[in-house]
C-alpha cells in the first residue's frame, strides 16, 4: 500500500531542512572569512608587534589586539583558513583511504577482509591522542599545515573503513546487485552505478564530520604546544592566549575570539552534516 499510494513523486528540497540551512549558512560565513577576507589583511597576521598591544575591540581593531602586538581579527581569519585546511586534508586522505579499504574488504571477503579489518581495528582501538602527541613531538611544533593534516589523517580513515565495509557487505547481499549481474552488467559498472550511489551520501556526511574531528584534534595538539605554532590556526590562537595568561589579565577578547569561533564552527559543521544525513535518509526511504 505504501508504494502504491506514493504515485506522485514527492520532491523534498534540502533547503527545507532547517538544521542544514542554519549550519550551511554559518559555514559559508567561515569559508568567506577564511578563504577570501583573510587575503585582505593589511599586515602579516602572524608577525609580532605590527599593531599596538592589548587594545580592546574598537572600530580599527574589531576584535582587539594581543600582548604580542597581533590583530586578533586578522589572526582569527587566517586561523580559520588554516584550521579548515587541516580538516580538509585529513578528511580527504582519511575518506579516500577509508572508502577504498572498506569497499575492498567488503567485496573481496576472506583473507583480505580479515587482514584489512585487523589493521583497521588496531587503528580504532589504539588511543589516538598519545600517538598524535608523540608524532607531533617529533616535529617540535614546526610542522607545516599540510604535514599536520597528514598526521591527523593517520587516525581518520579507520572508522570510515569499518562503516563502508559494513555497507558493502550488506549491499553485496542485495537482490538488485545479483539481478544486475544476471542481466550481464559488467563488474565495474555494478560498482560505479549500483554500489557507489549508495555509499556516496554517507561519505559526504562523514566527510564533514571528519573535518570537525580533525580541527578539534589540531586544537588539542596546539593547546599542548605541539601544533604548527608559527602558523595561525584556531588552536594556536588559544595556545598563545593561554601562554600570556589572557584570562587572568582580563584580555577576554584574545582568548574568547578563537574559542567562540571554534564553537560556532563546530556547531555549523555538525548541523550541516546532520542535516545532510537526515535529508539523504528521507530521500532513500
Amino acid at each position: 500500500m505504501k508504494s502504491k499510494s506514493k504515485k506522485k513523486k514527492i520532491v523534498v528540497s534540502i533547503w527545507d531542512n532547517k538544521r542544514f540551512v542554519v549550519g550551511f549558512t554559518l559555514l559559508m560565513v567561515f569559508i568567506v572569512l577564511g578563504f577570501i577576507i583573510s587575503n585582505f589583511s593589511p599586515y602579516d597576521p602572524r608577525s609580532w608587534g605590527t599593531v599596538p598591544e592589548e587594545l580592546p575591540p574598537s572600530l580599527k581593531h574589531p576584535l582587539g589586539t594581543t600582548s604580542l602586538g597581533r590583530d586578533v581579527f586578522w589572526f582569527l581569519a587566517e586561523g580559520i583558513k588554516n584550521s579548515l585546511m587541516i580538516g580538509l586534508v585529513a578528511a580527504i586522505v582519511g575518506g579516500a583511504v577509508g572508502v577504498t579499504v572498506g569497499i575492498t574488504a567488503g567485496f573481496s571477503g576472506g583473507v583480505i577482509d580479515r587482514i584489512l579489518m585487523a589493521i583497521t581495528d588496531t587503528f580504532i582501538a589504539v588511543p589516538s591522542l598519545p600517538i598524535l602527541i608523540l608524532l607531533a613531538f617529533l616535529f617540535k611544533g614546526r610542522a607545516s599545515i599540510m604535514v599536520l593534516g597528514l598526521i591527523i589523517s593517520i587516525f581518520s580513515w579507520a572508522w570510515p573503513a569499518r562503516q563502508v565495509r559494513a555497507m558493502a557487505l550488506s549491499l553485496r547481499e542485495r537482490d538488485y546487485i545479483s539481478m544486475a549481474f544476471f542481466s550481464g552488467e559488467k563488474p565495474y559498472k555494478i560498482l560505479f552505478f549500483e554500489i557507489f550511489p549508495h555509499v556516496i551520501p554517507w561519505t559526504i556526511a562523514n566527510f564533514i564530520n571528519a573535518i570537525l574531528v580533525a580541527i578539534g584534534q589540531e586544537a588539542t595538539l596546539a593547546v599542548l604546544g605541539l601544533s604548527a605554532l608559527e602558523e595561525a590556526t584556531l588552536g594556536t590562537g588559544i595556545y598563545w592566549a593561554m601562554q600570556y595568561q589572557a584570562i587572568f589579565r582580563g584580555l577576554w577578547w584574545w582568548i574568547a575570539s578563537p574559542v567562540v569561533a571554534m564553537i560556532i564552527l563546530f556547531v555549523s559543521l555538525f548541523l550541516t552534516s546532520k542535516g545532510l544525513q537526515e535529508h539523504l535518509a528521507s530521500r532513500r526511504s
Binding site: D175, Y176, S178, M179
Partner: peptide, 11 residues
C-alpha cells in the same frame, strides 16, 4: 534467477 521481492530486485 527470480527473486522474492520484485521491488528489491530492481534498483
Amino acid at each position: 534467477p527470480i527473486f522474492q521481492n520484485p521491488f528489491a530486485a530492481f534498483n
